[in-house]
């Protein structure tokens, strides 16, 4: 199962007109496209229409989460609505299953949020503003866990799609001072509590491409500045009997 993924394309009125050429041919390389957030510069409906120009006519399924840039104009509901009208599936605490030529893919998606990682994570203690920050991370992680839990046993491959990182591995290259704004380990905790074959995220423009959750699930940072091309392709071979490629899936019944 070939999965193309990219994040942080930050489309705006000033985007290079040639930027979309490789995406127009992505169906030659992959069975599905995952967009890991920061699709727009500031999250305006006009910028969402640029995303649709590039991905609305792609002949394979396109599944997306929004990023922080897509929230900046505080019109994320409109952005989501427009993308969905164009056939792009936008996930926020949702899960989707699609049948591809090579098997059934389940994707659980959430924007994610900051909060940091073991040893240097934010704690809901003290001022209510600090508690609100941490509680939002907790809420988002709970949404991810719930979405993952809704994926059925019929999925051959399961992917967790998010904008923020679940691990400091893929933040390597970013200044450590800003790690708490780039991801949260609570996202990894949600992933490791279920059976997932791959985690895809963006947001960390100066980060590293490859990492893993503490439970050993592969994590890939597909922010375009990191991958240095229009998209990355992952080939996950569904194992016989519906087992996930990481061999951790528990068969029901």
């Amino acid at each position: 199962m070939r999965i193309a993924a990219v994040g942080d394309i930050h489309l705006g009125a000033d985007s290079d007109s040639t930027i979309g050429r490789p995406w127009a041919h992505v169906a030659e390389d992959a069975d599905v496209v995952l967009l890991a957030g920061d699709l727009t510069k500031c999250g305006t409906p006009a910028e969402a229409r640029l995303v649709i120009e590039h991905f609305g006519n792609v002949s394979i399924p396109v599944i997306a989460v929004l990023g922080n840039h897509d929230h900046h104009a505080e019109r994320d509901d409109e952005v989501t609505h427009l993308l969905r009208l164009a056939g792009i599936q936008v996930l926020e605490g949702d899960a989707v299953e699609i049948d591809l030529p090579s098997g059934r893919l389940g994707v659980a998606g959430v924007k994610g949020f900051g909060g940091g990682f073991a040893g240097a994570n934010a704690t809901a203690f003290g001022e209510r503003e600090m508690k609100a920050f941490v509680h939002h991370t907790e809420l988002v992680a709970e949404r991810l866990a719930a979405a993952l839990g809704r994926l059925t046993d019929s999925c051959d491959v399961r992917v967790a799609l998010m904008h923020y990182s679940p691990t400091p591995d893929t933040l390597c290259g970013e200044r450590p001072e800003i790690h708490p704004f780039l991801g949260s380990q609570l996202l990894a905790e949600a992933v490791d509590a279920t059976q997932v074959d791959l985690v895809v995220h963006g947001h960390a423009h100066a980060g590293t491409e490859r990492g893993a959750t503490p439970g050993g699930i592969p994590v890939r940072n597909v922010a375009m500045p990191v991958i240095g091309c229009a998209y990355r392709v992952f080939d996950l071979a569904p194992a016989a009997g519906g087992l996930g490629t990481n061999g951790r899936r528990v068969e029901s019944g």
Binding site: R2, P22, R220, M224, G228, C229, R232, V233, D235
Partner: peptide, 14 residues
């Protein structure tokens, strides 16, 4: 500015 060319590497096998 980031490169926007088509990927030149083979798919990563996972």
């Amino acid at each position: 500015t980031p490169a926007v060319a088509s990927p030149t590497t083979d798919p990563e096998q996972l």
